[in-house]
Design a protein around this nucleic acid. Structure first.
Lengths: 197, 197
DNA sequence: TCGTGTAGCTTAACAGTGTTAAGTTACACG
DNA sequence: CGTGTAACTTAACACTGTTAAGCTACACGA
């Protein structure tokens, strides 16, 4: 195992950077460990000194990406606008973030799991992002802009809605969608109208 | 190339049956052509006499599955209840169908595409299912239960919503969701309240 | 009945994959 | 100077999707 020196951490990060770039450009399945290693001038086996396997490497990259989403959402949660407006901005940011990082987003929501033990929910960054959504919903319930007091149910309903449009736009690029921002706004309008009804 | 005799078609179907069963049980990525061939007592190369490659085999299986969904949706569209109720039943059927065929569903919406040319939208069965949704929406607009007259926008908004909850329930099995039917009903209630607002 | 075409399947191989056991190198430190 | 060990590599294993070439058995016309 490689030691946790500063130098070792830099190799580690360079592996993640190279892999991330290749995953985005060519897709996870089309990127081999040999190709990643070659890009940074190492041998494929070196990667295994820093990551358990290819899936672990991918997971850590996605964690890093989603940590950025959480930071963006936390920043939005501090804006001084109404709770309902903050909620809407957060939902919009989630969607936009997914569209800006389509490969990372698709990978996280692409049950690579297949068979075997059901994939554990990545408690780290995915849950952190969801927590900001829940807080936003709770704030709207507290100030009366959302009457239904079931925070968890409302939050998950909203998540389903924004994940749906994000996921469709990413994975079904051949479908003749209406103009993208119009569809996104329609989803947001519908969800918010629905839960504030 | 194998001829289109009755016998050849039966081999073809037996390949699809074996592959489908294995894909569902072990996941697309964990099933090799050799494993499929062995299950039906043939050599892997035989599969290539009937299907272009592994992706083609998967595509044809999914087409077959989604054709069943379309049949179910068409049946619902003929029920003698109000258009809005028919719409809701259709949305619910879509979600339930996805949950009943989680692997097929996940595969279709899992941009295996990666890089290369953007995946063509499978005009065949996927579009047929969406068409029944659009018809249902149009019927609601015609009888006044939906006021917004933008059929395409409303249909796609609804699709995003139901795809979202279906996809989350399938791919994020480790997440502590609220009770499944409660979440599904909440999504349906929210969407319908939102578009009839 | 014999020869031939061909439908349907197989053999053998290629080029690639993720992964690992064992080995090498070079440097820090007593 | 000698030794330990961190960091990396060599070589291989068992597997993958895929294909070119070959075999076999049967249908059919002469």
């Amino acid at each position: 195992m490689a030691a946790a020196t500063v130098q070792a951490e830099s190799v580690r990060q360079s592996i993640m950077d190279a892999a991330s770039e290749l995953f985005v450009a060519e897709g996870y399945g089309n990127v081999s460990m040999r190709k990643i290693a070659q890009k940074i001038g190492y041998t494929p086996t070196t990667i295994y000194l820093y990551f358990e396997d290819k899936a672990d490497l991918l997971n850590q990259i996605c964690d890093q990406t989603f940590a950025q989403l959480t930071r963006n959402l936390v920043a939005i949660s501090k804006l001084s606008v109404s709770p309902l407006e903050r909620l809407r901005l957060g939902l919009r940011e989630y969607i936009q973030f997914g569209l800006n990082h389509p490969n990372h987003y698709a990978i996280v929501f692409s049950s690579i799991s297949a068979a075997g033990p059901p994939v554990e929910f990545e408690t780290s960054e995915g849950e952190a992002a969801f927590n900001t959504l829940r807080d936003s919903v709770a704030a709207c319930q507290a100030d009366g802009s959302i009457k239904d007091q079931n925070t968890e149910l409302i939050s998950q309903t909203l998540w389903a809605g924004i994940h749906g449009v994000t996921s469709l736009l990413i994975t079904q690029q051949g479908f003749p969608f209406v103009e993208q921002t119009a569809l996104i706004d329609s989803v947001l309008d519908t969800l918010i109208a629905g839960i504030t009804a």
